[in-house]
C-alpha cells in the first residue's frame, strides 16, 4: 500500500547500460541528452516521452505551467531522481556521476535563513568533492569562493552573514556557490521568482556573460521575459511541446497553457 508513495532511495545507484558513446568520441556531442524519458510519482504521470538535446554553449529556457514537470525534469538531469523509463546523459555520463560538473541554483534556498554561516563559507561549500575529502576548507577553496563571488559582482558580501542578505543578493550568492565548483553546465530553477524586476534584469545580464563559457539550462514561468536572453525555449507540460529556435507563437502558448493566455508582445 505504501509502495507507491515511497520516495526513491538515495542509495539507488541503478543505471541502465548505455548505448550512447562517450562525449569525447563525437564532435559537438550534446551536453545534456534526454531520450524517451517518462517519470511518474505513484499513479500521476509527470513526464511522458520527453526528448531533449542541448548543445555546448546553448542558453535554453525551459518554460511551462506549474506542475508541468519542469522541476522534476531538472531533478532527473541532476541525478536526484532516477528515470523510470528512458535515458539521460550529462556530458556523456549518467547524471549521478556528472552532478559535480553541474552548477545548480535552486528556486528556494533549502537552508534556514538564520543559519550561522558567512557568505564566503556558504560559497566555499560549492567546492565539496574537489580535492581531499578530510579536513577543513583550504586556502584554495577560499580563493575559488572569492573568485566566484567576484564573478557575480558580490565580493563585498563575503563577510556578511547569509541571513542578512536581500533576495537579489542571496540569488547572486547561490549563483556563486554553483560556480565555485568549476561547473561546466549551469542549471537554474526559477532563479528570479522572488526578486523584483530591476534586479531580475541584472541577474539575466550576468547569466548572458556567463553563457560565453558555460551551457545554461534555466527554468522559468515567464516566457516573455526570458525570450530576450535565451538562445532557445523548450516548453514542457508533461510532454515537451516545442523546442525550436524561433520565437514562441500564440499557438504554442495555447497548447502549453490550454487556452486563455494572452501572448505578451516583446521586443527583440
Amino acid at each position: 500500500m505504501f509502495a507507491h508513495t515511497l520516495p526513491p532511495s538515495p542509495f539507488d545507484h541503478r543505471e541502465k547500460a548505455s548505448a550512447i558513446p562517450p562525449a569525447a568520441e563525437r564532435p559537438e556531442a550534446p551536453v545534456i541528452l534526454v531520450r524517451d524519458l517518462s517519470f511518474s510519482y505513484g499513479d500521476a504521470l509527470v513526464l511522458e516521452q520527453v526528448n531533449l538535446s542541448i548543445a555546448p554553449g546553448e542558453f535554453v529556457g525551459l518554460v511551462g505551467p506549474n506542475a508541468g514537470g519542469k522541476s522534476t525534469l531538472l531533478k532527473l538531469i541532476l541525478g536526484l531522481l532516477a528515470p523510470q523509463t528512458g535515458q539521460i546523459r550529462v556530458l556523456g555520463q549518467p547524471p549521478r556521476q556528472a552532478a559535480r560538473r553541474i552548477g545548480y541554483v535552486p528556486q528556494f534556498p533549502s537552508f534556514p535563513r538564520d543559519f550561522p554561516i558567512s557568505v564566503e563559507q556558504a560559497v566555499a561549500m560549492g567546492r565539496l568533492g574537489i580535492g581531499p575529502m578530510l579536513g577543513w576548507h583550504r586556502a584554495a577553496d577560499r580563493d575559488a569562493a572569492r573568485r566566484a563571488l567576484e564573478e557575480v559582482e558580490a565580493l563585498d558580501l563575503a563577510r556578511r552573514r547569509i541571513g542578512t542578505l536581500s533576495g537579489g543578493q542571496l540569488q547572486r550568492v547561490l549563483l556563486a556557490r554553483a560556480l565555485a565548483g568549476e561547473a561546466e553546465i549551469l542549471i537554474l530553477d526559477e532563479p528570479t521568482a522572488n526578486i523584483d524586476q530591476r534586479v531580475e534584469s541584472d541577474i539575466f545580464d550576468l547569466l548572458a556573460v556567463l553563457n560565453r563559457r558555460l551551457t545554461i539550462l534555466l527554468v522559468s514561468h515567464d516566457i516573455a521575459f526570458i525570450s530576450d536572453y535565451v538562445s532557445r525555449v523548450a516548453c514542457l507540460n508533461r510532454t515537451l511541446l516545442y523546442h525550436g529556435t524561433d520565437a514562441v507563437n500564440a499557438e504554442t502558448i495555447q497548447q502549453l497553457y490550454g487556452g486563455h493566455v494572452r501572448l505578451v508582445a516583446h521586443r527583440h
Binding site: P10, L78, G79, L80, A99, R100, I102, Y104, P106, P109, S110, F111, F115, I117, Q121, A122, M125, G126, L128, G129, M133, L134, G135, W136, H137, R177, G181
Partner: peptide, 21 residues
C-alpha cells in the same frame, strides 16, 4: 576530520548530495 561534510549536510542536504557527499 569531517567538518566540511557535516557542515554541508546540516546546511543544505540537497546541495551536499549534488556535490557527491
Amino acid at each position: 576530520l569531517f567538518y566540511r561534510q557535516f557542515l554541508a549536510v546540516i546546511f543544505d542536504e540537497e546541495f551536499a548530495r549534488l556535490r557527491g557527499v
